[in-house]
Computed example of a mutant assay.
Amino acid sequence: MFSFFKKKKFLVDSIAGITDFHNHLLPGIDDGAGTVEDSIIMIEKFKELGIENFIHTPHIISDYYPNNRATIEEAFTKLYSEYDNQTSNSYSAEYMMDQQFLEILSQNEIIPLFKKYLLVEMSYFQPPINLKEILFKIQNHSYKPILAHPERYAYYQSSDLGKYKELKNLGCSFQLNLLSLTPHYGIPVQKIALKLLENDMIDFISTDTHRIDHLLKLEKITLQQKQLELIKKVIDNNHKKISLN
């Protein structure tokens, strides 16, 4: 008998082996892991899900988390001096596109992701008034901007995806938070995440994990086969770009 209900499959079965390049696992330097013990608990859970390679990306936000290479390297060294999982992990940052970021950029103090990619974010309240200038300067310094979780910026959410297309034309790649495929951040975020995915506008995926409960939710995500096939295309792009590092 024909079923109107298509069988769903667990997302974690498709994402094993990825390099998670957006997370907040380094201890004590932003709103992610508070201690080395917290970090290790999350890394061990990642291993259960088949993910063992990380590029750590703590926030750099001038008024809240004024991190730099020294503070990030210190937290990285502290973590991996106590926990050695025999993988080639590294670190970068998630840069808030603010005035301090422009200063960091002009002083050549950027910590890039793989190759010359750079993970950037915006305020959830409004985009920078000089966003076009910032994106131009990023690329003028030979970096390629990856916008973190574009689906979460409410001021860009629209049915025609016009604002997203404009960002693409300005040279932005898009990184999807996997939990955005669920109502974790709200139904509007979930809807736009799926719409961006279905319109082939997502370039990268990562978890943006801050706490262990994020991973507990991640392991329960189920998707339709068509959605998983779209995710696989993005994963293949991740592997290709990161392997060129």
Rank of each mutant, 00 (worst) to 15 (best):
A154T: 15
F136Q: 02
Q100A: 14
T222N: 13
M97V: 11
I110D: 00
L181Q: 02
Q157F: 10
D30K: 13
S92D: 00
K144V: 09
T57M: 03
D20Q: 09
A193W: 06
H22K: 02
T71R: 00
L196T: 04
F101K: 07
S92Y: 01
E121Y: 13
K163E: 14
A75W: 04
Y143V: 09
Q126H: 13
T35W: 03
Y64C: 08
H149M: 07
L49Q: 03
T35Y: 03
K7T: 15
L215V: 05
S243W: 14
E121R: 07
S14A: 05
N237L: 08
E121H: 10
S90H: 13
L218E: 00
K233Y: 09
D84K: 09
E48L: 04
Q225L: 08
Y155I: 05
F54V: 14
R211C: 10
G171T: 06
P150S: 02
P150N: 02
G186D: 08
K8D: 12
I41W: 03
L102E: 06
I60N: 08
P127H: 14
F54S: 09
I55D: 02
F46K: 03
Q190Y: 07
E103Q: 15
I55F: 13
I192S: 00
H141S: 08
G34Y: 11
D84N: 12
N245P: 05
D38A: 07
L228W: 03
A33N: 05
N108P: 09
D160H: 08
F4G: 14
T87C: 13
V12Y: 02
N89Q: 07
N140W: 13
A33M: 09
S92P: 00
S123D: 13
Q175V: 12
L223A: 04
S106Y: 13
T35V: 05
N89D: 12
H59L: 15
L218H: 02
I61C: 12
P66S: 09
I212C: 07
H149V: 07
L244G: 13
N23V: 05
Y164C: 06
L147K: 03
N23S: 04
P112N: 06
S206F: 03
N177R: 06
N140R: 15
L11S: 00
I231H: 00
F136S: 01
F2A: 05
A33D: 04
K191N: 10
K191M: 10
I187V: 12
S81D: 07
G171W: 05
K165I: 02
A93T: 10
